[in-house]
Design a protein around this nucleic acid. Structure first.
Lengths: 230, 230
DNA sequence: TTAATTAATGAATTGTCATTCATACATTAT
DNA sequence: ATAATGTATGAATGACAATTCATTAATTAA
């Protein structure tokens, strides 16, 4: 087992990302991953313990970078509202930049509860960021005092994920990052202390011009495994 | 292949639901399903084409009932706001009543894009209900005119699913249905036309007494498949 | 009551991969 | 130039599980 993270290591990781995203973890084979990475099947076992370990390391690698960027995005902003906006924007941006990661996070991670155990729970850190922001917002007086934080943070995370799922289902054909402001504005008009006055409805209107896909686009070019005559 | 939907057919379906929910589709075996249903392995093939077909029929069966109830819930209410409340309540209620279905919908369906093709896209009908409600609300003047409906409906669906995922991860230990009003109130304060006056914040405060689980509860009693020494 | 038909069984078959490992190649040290 | 060490290969192995099917049991018809 190689210790170094060589070029080959990363080639295998990225290839695995693309294969897992395309076929799902269980229907992906080592041979597929090896071929796409341009190595022999056996070579994979010089760098990874087994198939599970490939997924595990992929997630580990991606989440590390992901959360570092997220932390920076938050710290760069002052007020809770700006922090929230940065967080969501960063989330959408990173997923847009790496659709394989997006697909794997949205489907594989939720599915594989055993993986979640090893990745010290991806959503946990995210939800902690959100708690932090919401509580700061309440201190500042920008957010309502009567919020049930435990619910609000799931509410926020769930909604971003819903938007990402739609984007993934449409094969990433439109600009995801431009959803940031309309989305945050939807949150705020729920979270924001309305006594506080002026709502930020801003440029919500002109977003209508973005072509959001029809629902039935979601079932495009996928392999059907229900055999009619087995 | 039997045509009739006998007791045995339903026994197998429910058993499959429980096994799939427990181990995930790929790690579930026909033998497990057969044993739990109290039949022989071969018997399953008298009622189902293959393993995929079991999942497919399970979803078909569950969604049919689910959407019938949902349609009724909506039609029973007058205003858009009440319809939305009924929809969400019905959703949470049905999932709470059948946690196996909840688990399979939340993890398996999103994962298996090939299944979505056969189930004419579960979320599609849901999103259509939401469109209908939102547009009615805009007609009534209860909801903002400047809403981007395509985004708003994903926003709503995503947030409910986020709340359900948390509940599932906590093994359904708390009352999910009681999340309805706090959740809808979060939506409304974003969607609701604020010129329209009186916000419905109602009893949002006392919800704090419900013990929402800590994030790290999400990784409880799951089987770990990453073998240290394969 | 016996024959015909239908339903159920579970051991045997079969296909599919993950994983291994004997062999070959490459690189560095002597 | 040769040995020693580290990498890479891909055919062979073995485990596992979905599916089949010859056999048995149950039910219905005559």
């Amino acid at each position: 087992m190689q210790k170094e993270k060589t070029d080959k290591y990363y080639a295998i990781l990225e290839s695995a990302g693309s294969i897992f995203a395309r076929f799902g973890f269980y229907k992906s084979t080592i041979t597929q991953i090896a071929t796409e990475a341009g190595v022999a099947d056996g070579t994979i076992y010089l760098y990874f313990k087994n198939k599970d370990d490939i997924l595990y390391q992929f997630l580990q690698f991606k989440t590390t970078t992901f959360f570092e960027k997220m932390r920076q995005a938050i710290d760069r902003s002052e007020t809770a509202e700006l922090k929230l906006r940065s967080l969501i924007k960063c989330h959408l941006q990173e997923f847009q930049n790496d659709i394989n990661m997006a697909i794997i996070f949205q489907s594989e991670v939720r599915y594989r509860r055993d993986i979640a155990f090893h990745i010290k729970d991806i959503s946990k850190m995210y939800l902690e960021f959100l708690s932090e922001i919401i509580e700061q917002g309440q201190m500042e007086g920008a957010l309502r005092q009567d919020l049930f934080v435990g619910l609000v943070k799931r509410f926020i995370l769930g909604a971003v994920e819903g938007v990402i799922n739609t984007w993934v289902a449409a094969d990433g054909k439109y600009d995801l990052v431009s959803m940031t402001d309309p989305l945050v504005d939807l949150y705020l008009n729920g979270i924001q202390n309305s006594i506080n006055g002026t709502k930020i409805n801003g440029n919500i209107n002109n977003i209508k011009s973005i072509s959001f896909p029809k629902e039935n686009l979601e079932i495009n070019n996928r392999v059907n495994t229900i055999n009619s005559n087995p």
